[in-house]
């Protein structure tokens, strides 16, 4: 675990949307997925993660249904909608351009 990376605005949305491309998940699973995939480097505060989930649900980028978890508990499952998929494509392309631009400056300096 090295330096903490502060999450850029909008980046959390992007991560959540990307995570949900794997299939419907409940909030806990999304949090765990992001933590494990980034080796806990991003330090996503879970409260912020849930806020992002609900905000995107309101925008209809993701939809939520109640389902039954693997240990037979009632859980809220989120899945990507068509609108969410479009958002993901647009946002990840924009993020890549942004990151490359930043890298170019960092390398030349």
């Amino acid at each position: 675990m090295s330096t903490d990376l502060e999450l850029l605005q909008g980046t959390l949305d992007l991560l959540v949307l990307k995570t949900l491309t794997w299939g419907p998940m409940h909030g806990y699973a999304v949090a765990r997925w992001i933590r494990e995939t980034t080796n806990d480097e991003l330090h996503v505060e879970e409260g912020a993660l849930y806020t992002a989930l609900h905000r995107m649900e309101k925008r209809a980028w993701i939809a939520a249904d109640w389902g039954v978890s693997e240990n037979n508990r009632k859980a809220r499952y989120y899945r990507l909608t068509a609108a969410g998929r479009r958002q993901l494509l647009g946002k990840s392309a924009a993020f890549e351009r942004y990151a490359q631009a930043v890298f170019r400056i960092l390398r030349t300096a």
């Binding site: 419907p24 998940m25 409940h26 494990e36 249904d65 389902g67 039954v68 978890s69």
Partner: peptide
């Protein structure tokens, strides 16, 4: 990277609840 054990299972329709 491990697959989350409890995610990709299609949840039943919400209306039942």
């Amino acid at each position: 990277m491990t697959m989350s054990p409890d995610s990709p299972r299609r949840p039943p329709r919400a209306r039942l609840f």
